[in-house]
Simulated scan of single mutants.
Amino acid sequence: MMLAKVLGAVPLFSGLTEEQLEYVAKHLKRRNYAEREVIVRRDSPGDSLFILTSGKAKCAYLDSEDETIIAIYRPGDFFGELSVLDGEERSADVVALESTEVLVLSATDFHACLHAVPAIAVELLKQLAGRLRRATSWIRSLSSQDVYGRIASQLLHLSQTHGTDVEGGRLIGLRLTQNDMASLVGASRESVNKAMGYFKQKGYITVDTTYHITVHNHDALSKRAQ
């Protein structure tokens, strides 16, 4: 029952009945990962779907010495679905950013759940459509925005998905160095340093000594992101 309750808080499964949640839950296994531990390794077999229940993780592509961060996962997010669906190898690494717990559903059990509970497939399609829309929007921004605009867009997105309201702004609950920001927006560290310095000077954001960013002027960043 405990796993079913946890599962019910995950958007992919939140529309299921208690009986359906129990059915899916009996196929799940818990796994825990320490900070910086690899959860999924690129080019490995795609034999499981992962559901993040606590902590945070990044999905990244490492090419030589350059890292591109594709997404940052929070509780309620799932990953690994593409390889489970098409049988291909993993396309990126997923690494824990802090102590993280995931629920693991094997490919065989995942397909069994899709057949037994078709509502999962419907919600999965909705979630994948949302991800595709966001990816399309980001590709468009890469071609139409300068580094300042891309950073503004990313800060707004992160403040929405990982932020909490604090006095005078919204604190992004992630430790983000300038290298991390460069990996997120596809720019050089030097360009990011210049843009972040400008935003700090204008009072749009502040960055504390632990590399946590607080957004103070949402409207100004929104205007810069257009």
Rank of each mutant, 00 (worst) to 15 (best):
P75R: 07
I39H: 00
E35W: 07
F78N: 00
F50Y: 15
Y73P: 04
R41A: 13
T53H: 05
S54E: 12
A34Q: 14
D43V: 01
G46V: 01
F79S: 04
T53F: 05
N32Q: 11
R31C: 02
L49F: 11
Y73V: 04
S54P: 02
E65F: 07
K56L: 09
A60T: 08
E67L: 13
I39T: 04
S64L: 10
N32G: 10
F50W: 10
G46R: 01
V40E: 03
E35Q: 14
K58S: 12
A60Q: 11
F79C: 08
S48M: 04
I51D: 05
D63P: 00
E81P: 04
S54C: 08
L52T: 07
S64Y: 02
R41S: 09
E67D: 02
Y33K: 10
N32I: 10
E81A: 07
P75L: 07
I51Y: 11
I72P: 00
K56Q: 15
D77F: 13
L62T: 00
L82F: 11
C59T: 11
R74C: 08
G46T: 02
I72G: 00
G55R: 02
D77K: 12
F50V: 11
D77S: 14
L49Y: 09
K56S: 15
F79Q: 07
F79V: 09
Y73C: 10
E81S: 05
T68I: 08
E81G: 04
V38A: 08
R42Q: 14
V38W: 01
N32V: 14
P45Q: 03
G46P: 04
G80Q: 05
C59D: 02
